Simulated scan of single mutants.
Amino acid sequence: MPVPARLAPLLAQFDFARQRLGDRMAGPLMDSGNGTEVQVGPMTDAEYLWEPGPGCWSVRRHADGPGPGATVLVGAGEFGRDTTPPPHPEPAPFTTIAWRLSHLAELLALRADHTNGSHSLTRDDYRVSGDVATAVKAFSAAADAWRDALLSADDEALDTVGHCTYPHGSDPEELFLDVVWWVNQEILHHGAEIALLRDLYRLGNAAS
């Protein structure tokens, strides 16, 4: 099925953003933003779980319970992600790379399921990764699933309210084209945050 003209630039933006984030986390090379390739080392588990200050939300073992200010560890398996039912704390807790990457992978995987899958998965079904290697693979798999969901959409689907039934957002009340745009900005802004945290971690280690 040909890609609808309105979807093509958003698909290209998604491909660039996910590739750049994946390279930024795994190395050995990444696009600096102007087409120049620069070297980057692979992320370590210590970096993935690094808490720059007190009160951070992160990924933790269910057996250890939630972190400061959180009341729930959401996710299946040994690990969960700190959260609390709405209303969330204000100001929002600072979150680790592990938290942000888990959030990104989960929203991609679940939205894919609620677009062209079973329309049944929730956060309680999503397996949270406790180490960076598993987390990066999970992000890549979730991004592939979301891309497949995009390729399944025609112009009618793009104009359909509730084409994606993702239960943890406003998707059931949104045009699918708007959901596609929203997912792109999630990858762009969380990807930038992860990149900055990598830089700060590197600088902190260099100073110590």
Rank of each mutant, 00 (worst) to 15 (best):
T96C: 06
A105I: 04
V74T: 13
A109H: 13
P86I: 03
G117I: 02
L108V: 00
A109C: 10
E78M: 11
H88T: 10
P87K: 10
L104G: 00
P91Y: 04
V72A: 01
E90W: 06
S129W: 00
T96F: 04
H119G: 09
R81E: 02
D113G: 09
D124T: 13
G117N: 04
A76F: 01
S129I: 04
G130R: 05
R123H: 13
R81C: 06
H119K: 14
P89C: 07
H103K: 00
T83E: 07
E90M: 12
W99R: 00
F94C: 02
A70T: 12
G117Q: 10
E78A: 15
T83S: 12
L108P: 08
R123V: 11
A109I: 04
S102T: 15
H114G: 02
V72T: 15
L73A: 07
S118I: 00
L110Y: 03
A112R: 07
S120R: 15
P85T: 09
L107T: 15
D82P: 08
H103R: 09
S129T: 06
F94R: 15
H119Y: 05
A105C: 08
W99C: 04
W99H: 14
P89G: 07
Y126D: 05
L110N: 07
E78D: 14
T83D: 13
R111E: 08
R81A: 11
A76Y: 01
F94P: 12
D124K: 11
A105F: 03
F79A: 06
H103D: 05
H114V: 03
S129H: 01
L104W: 02
P93C: 05
F79I: 09
P87V: 04
F79T: 11
E78Q: 10
E90R: 14
H103Q: 05
A70G: 08
W99P: 01
R123N: 15
A76R: 12
E106W: 10
T122Q: 12
A109W: 13
T96G: 00
G80P: 01
D125K: 10
G130Y: 00
P91M: 10
G77H: 08
D124F: 02
F79M: 08
E106R: 13
D124I: 00
D124W: 03
D82T: 09
H119M: 08
S129C: 15
H88Y: 12
N116I: 09
V128R: 00
R127N: 06
H119D: 05
A109E: 10
T122Y: 00
V72H: 14
H119E: 12
R100A: 14
Y126T: 08
V72N: 01
E78K: 11
A109P: 02
A70V: 05
L121I: 06
G117Y: 04
A76S: 13
R111G: 02
N116S: 15
S118H: 08
A112N: 03
D82K: 05
R127H: 11
P91Q: 13
G130N: 02
R111V: 01
L121Q: 14
T115Q: 05
L73K: 03
T122I: 07
P86Y: 09
G77A: 11
P86D: 15
W99F: 12
E106Q: 15
P85I: 09
E90C: 03
L101E: 00
R127K: 12
D113W: 05
L121D: 06
V74Y: 07
